[in-house]
Design a protein around this nucleic acid. Structure first.
Lengths: 97, 97
DNA sequence: AATTGTCTTGACAAATTTTGGCTAATATAG
DNA sequence: CTATATTAGCCAAAATTTGTCAAGACAATT
């Protein structure tokens, strides 16, 4: 149930000695929401991911990648054809670039 | 807006000379739903994908792959980090297998 | 020109999922 | 024990999903 994004956020937050409620107030949500995001029980909004990158002074791309990967994983995790589907999407993405 | 899954379903249906309403009645939904699925305006349920494989006598895995790829694509399509996220998920999937 | 058959579209409603806040309970530090 | 931090459960509001229905577009036929 843990997410890559949540784990990373918690790591950043604790290393910078910030409390849930401090981060929460910057995001303008309740501390329990941030807790749930860190535990992987809630999905952050994209806007919040960007705010978190600012708060922790870290790379937006790093966080967005983890966040996006969590979402994709959530969709494909129980599917036998997950790998084929991912390959197919990669191909399509490359074409569109 | 077109989907790989929808395109394939329409191809199968027309080649087998079935009408929307015939397929719809087998899925027990209105014909407009099937139309929308074929046009990529609605997402089929997983159960419907499996029924469609039976109806068209084609491979469930083929259809499930297209259906899953559409969903993943929908999530990552506008993201700069799409490719990195997909790679990360592939890695995680392989580990879990 | 009117009719028929197929498909598409948009408005709407019901059901489901997601979201956030509040509050309790639990843990952890002093 | 007390105080603070975090987690978990519950509720209501908001958003999304799913489907029906009716009207419209379009082509082929009569």
């Amino acid at each position: 149930m843990a997410t890559q994004f949540g784990d990373r956020i918690r790591e950043l937050r604790t290393k910078q000695n910030l409390l849930l409620r401090q981060v929460a107030s910057m995001l303008e949500v309740d501390a329990s929401i941030v807790s749930k995001i860190e535990l992987g029980e809630r999905k952050a909004k994209k806007e919040q991911v960007i705010q978190l990158a600012d708060i922790f002074k870290t790379s937006k791309d790093e966080l967005l990648t983890l966040w996006l990967a969590d979402q994709v994983y959530e969709i494909v995790k129980d599917e036998d054809v997950a790998d084929d589907a991912l390959k197919s999407v990669s191909k399509k993405i490359k074409k569109h670039k």
